[in-house]
Design a protein around this nucleic acid. Structure first.
Lengths: 140, 140
DNA sequence: TCGTATGTGAGAATGATTCCCATGAGCACG
DNA sequence: CGTGCTCATGGGAATCATTCTCACATACGA
């Protein structure tokens, strides 16, 4: 269980590597694994160490600038996201993602939690599927 | 948890190890990692190989007899559960879990997926919070 | 410009999970 | 009740993502 701490006061120092990671994420669409991002950075010439990529990603997540998603096989995937609360619709074939927000789900989560006496509630909702494009491609 | 299909037809062979895993899970309450379960089996004398524990767990998950939950640090945790589709309300303090089922969420997931042209949809929903007992304790 | 705390990188370490493969044991059949 | 064909087992190696280590580089305030 992760208690989200906020080191705050953290005078986060700026660096070429860190902005490279953020820039790359700005240009990409779906969720990408740390390994993927590292490879992409290498390809484009922004050589960055793997450990640094992991560190940068964690820092960005702590700062609330990224969403993390754990794929069924346990790999973590990251994505630049809008700051408001939302969930994801992820294509399991091409990785394309759509942000979806829907008050009813929020209410549902709050309600079931309340019914069982739970407080200080958070929820994780991810919907996986095959997007129209991939479904069509696969057909033929 | 996620909605998965049940391949069925599986002429699953019965074995001491497999029933030991299932029996153990029947006696336990919360979610346990494969490593934990393996250690527990060793302690009680039901010696079972680690690889076998993993295989048994996967088989049981495929058969819909277990729920899998991935903790934030990537470790998978398993739990005996009712066979019908449902989600979990997990106490982030004591780990107590409550199974919750609610058709509206299922419909919501199906609807948003359909709206975006996604097919072959699954969803993961976990609600985390602090249960009444832990909340009361913490007050002190 | 300087000092120093912080970030970086390469590779080693960690830890969960899976693979390999020779051996063991269900189960259908006679 | 034996026989055989498979699938299951186990243990150790292999894999893979992630984290750690530590010497070195560098951002940034004074």
């Amino acid at each position: 269980m992760s208690v989200t701490e906020q080191p705050e006061g953290g005078a986060r120092r700026q660096s070429r590597q860190r902005s490279a990671v953020l820039t790359l994420l700005d240009e990409l669409d779906g969720f990408r694994s740390a390994q993927d991002l590292h490879a992409l950075l290498r390809e484009r010439g922004d050589s960055v160490g793997l450990a640094t990529v992991y560190r940068a990603l964690q820092a960005l997540v702590d700062d609330g600038q990224l969403d993390v998603l754990r794929s069924p096989d346990g790999e973590a995937a990251y994505r630049r996201c809008s700051p408001s609360h939302h969930h994801h619709l992820v294509c399991r074939s091409c990785g394309r993602t759509v942000e979806v927000a829907d008050p009813p789900v929020e209410r549902w989560a709050a309600r079931v939690a309340a019914e069982h006496g739970f407080v200080d509630v958070q929820h994780d909702v991810e919907v996986f599927g095959t997007c129209a494009v991939c479904a069509a491609t696969r057909q033929g």
